[in-house]
Design a binder for these strands. Structure first.
Length: 740
DNA sequence: AGAGTGCAGCAACTT
DNA sequence: GCTGCACTCT
């Protein structure tokens, strides 16, 4: 078969080994996606397996989509019948069909972390538990941790005995599960846990899926947790054609319950497992790969392996020390601009960092320099208040028992239903054992409600109208009705602030996403389907490979991706590795950070820049951190210097200069010339009615004199001397300066 | 009874 | 720097 002849021997072996358990240890950049897609093609074409008998679990929806496309390319349209999806999506698909067998309704809501926290808060309030001693986030992560290990409420309670803190948490845990069930809701962990429960309680359901999935493949196996392991074990128990692919060196989700033992112990769980190692890297230069190998070899708990490559030596790895995080961003922007003038595309670059908090400064700099960029993760679109509000309205149309959603929006926008009224409804609902929303519908019966009654009844009427439209009309029509009747957008329009306008834009975007969904899914489009898609969408799922933009994201999000040029920003002890991991004193914690570092390094194909700052403003205070310990693990000969001190001097001209301050390598000066910042065309969208020397007025700082105006790609930076506040640098589009 | 406002507490990584 | 919450005002 010609299409398989391009595979190297171990890759080929992995493709044709289709029967029985297979552990594929695939190093970074070793072509595992190629193996997986060819393996699917081989099963269908050569082994005549029906496509729908193959299940492939990926880590993100994006990976699932890519895999399906690549299989389609190999064998044509039949590929689309293969079951390719993430753990969570797979479970939702199964539960939507069979969850009634374990006492939930098929219209169940999916709770994200924010919803779950609200529920915890609600319970702690009802139980008078002091949030000072029991932080909701800590309680939630304890509960989540238990679930990921398949520890149920009963076991947890038993094991908590004698431990005050755990006993309290176990009380919350019990009530949390009880309320989730009453609200007909599942949190992220429950999606997996309840599927396992379903399989264990309903043998015929399990058998159905066991028969269906003759061949199972799991990607990123090193990041599976206890529930996921159980789930896969159950599904694969009949045919045992289980192929897991992973790299223990890239296990970076321990905090989420990932258990590295799943991959390390695979051979003892499946003694007949075939083990194949993919150790040839096709992605990176020799220098980059060596740096990665040298860092990761400091970890003790790992399978022995050594990645190698036939690729060129390539450039040395650069480490740049900056004065502070702003200069770090400046260096990165300058280097990107230089790359662009050397013929690179923006999409050749990715900036990786440890914490989302670092993104702001970087983003600002990209914006100012006119560098097109895309920020992945952070506060995602679907976590925004206005989006969650609208989604809450949609949720309760399907599932009125979802009291978290009902209480979220009963008075949003303000409609005169205050706390007191809400409490009265709650008391009444509890008394009669009905859901909160049913209490709302009964508002005429509830004693002691005064001013709010009329408003509550109007709210109830509105929800009923939505439900009628949901039955007969289109999703688009429903959305318009919700936006119109709730007056959500109208309320924002009245605020007339930039933030409110942003929110309106976001809601419009949500609306068009819904229309897109409806058009794509055609007759199959349902409200439930839309809500489901929205609930499970992940940060990098909307990363579009066709966009010519610099990508900004966390190291975690970068897993599985590759770029010609990588910047790893914030290479400082305390930031990376994080404080938490250093303070815990556990070597495992540092090892996890080191794996994260390894993941970052191995994303780079041609050039790797490591940047750090001597001084960094984070969470409102200034830190002075040492360069990360991981840097010392990279041998000197792989670095193009010990340190390059990047010191842009901003004089009155605003020129940016780089100066090398290095006694070892002073023969190779690193310079970024002023020409780069001037090569950018003047901003197109902003016009200024003042020039240097003019007096301008600022809303906060009062009147000052313009000292300098610098052009960025998309905006002007204006330096103004305010007698009362000193010299300020402002962005023209934000500052709203008026000539006086 | 609800709305508006000042203030404390918090702040990894993510499906 | 942002968010939920207690407190005061209408």
């Amino acid at each position: 078969m010609e299409k398989y002849s391009t595979l190297n021997p171990p890759q080929y072996e992995a493709v044709i080994h289709t029967t029985g358990p297979l552990l594929l240890l695939a190093g970074a950049g070793s072509g595992k996606t190629r193996v997986l897609t060819h393996r699917v093609a081989y099963l269908i074409e050569e082994k005549k397996v029906f496509p729908w008998k193959i299940m492939a679990i990926t880590f993100t929806n994006k990976a699932a989509k890519e895999m399906r496309e690549r299989v389609d390319k190999l064998i044509g349209i039949r590929g689309s019948d293969v079951w390719v999806s993430t753990f969570h999506s797979s479970c939702v698909k199964i539960l939507r069909r069979y969850i009634n067998e374990i006492g939930y309704d098929r219209t169940f809501s999916i709770y994200d972390t924010d919803d779950a926290k609200r529920l915890i808060r609600e319970i702690m309030k009802a139980y008078n538990i002091d949030p000072k001693y029991y932080k909701e986030s800590a309680v939630l992560s304890e509960i989540s941790g238990a679930k990921n290990k398949l520890i149920g409420v009963d076991t947890y309670r038993r094991e908590a005995q004698g431990d005050m803190r755990k006993e309290t948490i176990s009380r919350i845990f019990v009530e949390y599960q009880k309320r989730l069930r009453n609200y007909n809701a599942l949190d992220f962990d429950d999606l997996l846990v309840k599927t396992v429960e379903l399989f264990e309680l309903s043998p015929k359901t399990l058998e159905y899926y066991q028969k269906l999935f003759e061949y199972i493949m799991v990607d990123e196996y090193q990041d599976t947790n206890g529930v996921q392991f159980r789930l896969i074990s159950l599904l694969a128990a009949k045919h045992r054609n289980l192929c897991v692919v992973g790299d223990d060196d890239q296990s970076i989700y321990r905090f989420r319950g990932a258990d590295i033992r799943n991959i390390l112990d695979f051979e003892s769980v499946y003694p007949d497992a075939k083990v194949i190692k993919l150790e040839q890297n096709y992605r990176s230069t020799k220098n980059i790969l060596s740096a990665a190998n040298e860092v990761i070899r400091n970890n003790r708990k790992r399978k022995v392996k050594k990645l190698w490559t036939d690729n060129d030596e390539g450039e040395l790895v650069s480490h740049i020390v900056n004065i502070n995080e702003k200069e770090e961003a400046g260096f990165i922007a300058d280097t990107i601009n230089k790359g662009i003038s050397d013929g690179r595309d923006y999409c050749d670059f990715a900036i990786l960092y440890r914490t989302n908090a670092q993104s702001r400064v970087l983003e600002e700099k990209m914006f100012r320099e006119g560098i097109p960029y895309k920020l992945i993760g952070g506060v995602s679109f679907y976590q925004r208040k206005e989006i969650k509000d609208i989604l809450a309205y949609l949720k309760i149309i399907n599932n009125g028992t979802d009291s978290i959603a009902v209480k979220r929006i009963i008075n949003v926008p303000r409609r005169g239903i205050g706390n007191t009224t809400v409490e009265k409804i709650q008391e009444y609902s509890d008394l009669y054992g009905i859901s909160f929303l049913d209490g709302v519908f009964d508002a005429t019966e509830i004693p002691n409600i005064k001013r709010g009654r009329k408003n509550v009844l109007e709210f109830a009427k509105m929800i009923n109208e939505f439900r009628e439209i949901a039955i007969s009309g289109s999703l688009e029509g429903l959305m318009n009705e919700v936006l119109d009747k709730t007056e959500y957008i109208k309320t924002l329009e009245l605020e007339n602030t930039p933030e409110a306008n942003d929110r309106i834009d976001n809601i419009k975007e949500l609306s068009s996403k819904m229309i897109d969904y409806e058009e794509q899914a055609k007759e199959e489009a349902t409200l439930l389907g839309f809500l489901e898609e929205v609930a499970l969408i992940g940060g990098i799922d909307d990363l579009n490979d066709d966009d010519n933009k610099v990508i900004l994201m966390t190291l975690h999000s970068a897993k599985g991706l590759e770029f010609p040029v990588i910047f790893m920003a914030g290479m400082e002890d305390g930031l990376f590795p994080s404080y938490m991991s250093i303070n815990s004193g556990l070597n495992e914690d540092i090892e996890e950070e080191r794996r994260l570092c390894y993941v970052g390094i191995t994303r780079a194909k041609e050039k790797l820049y490591l940047t750090s700052a001597r001084q960094r403003m984070l969470y409102g205070n200034t830190q002075y951190n040492q360069t990360t310990r991981f840097l010392a693990e990279i041998p000197k000969e792989l670095l193009d210097s010990d340190t390059i001190n990047y010191t842009p001097i901003q004089e009155n001209t605003g020129a940016i200069q780089a100066k090398r301050d290095n006694k070892f390598f002073s023969n190779k000066p690193y310079t970024v010339t002023k020409a780069i910042s001037q090569a950018i065309p003047a901003p197109a969208n902003v016009t200024l009615d003042y020039i240097a020397g003019d007096l301008v007025k600022h809303s906060k700082y009062g009147i000052g004199q313009v000292k300098m105006i610098e052009a960025g790609g998309a905006d002007y930076q204006v330096t103004v001397n305010f007698p009362s506040h000193g010299i300020k640098k402002l962005l023209a589009s934000f500052a709203g300066l008026k000539r006086v």
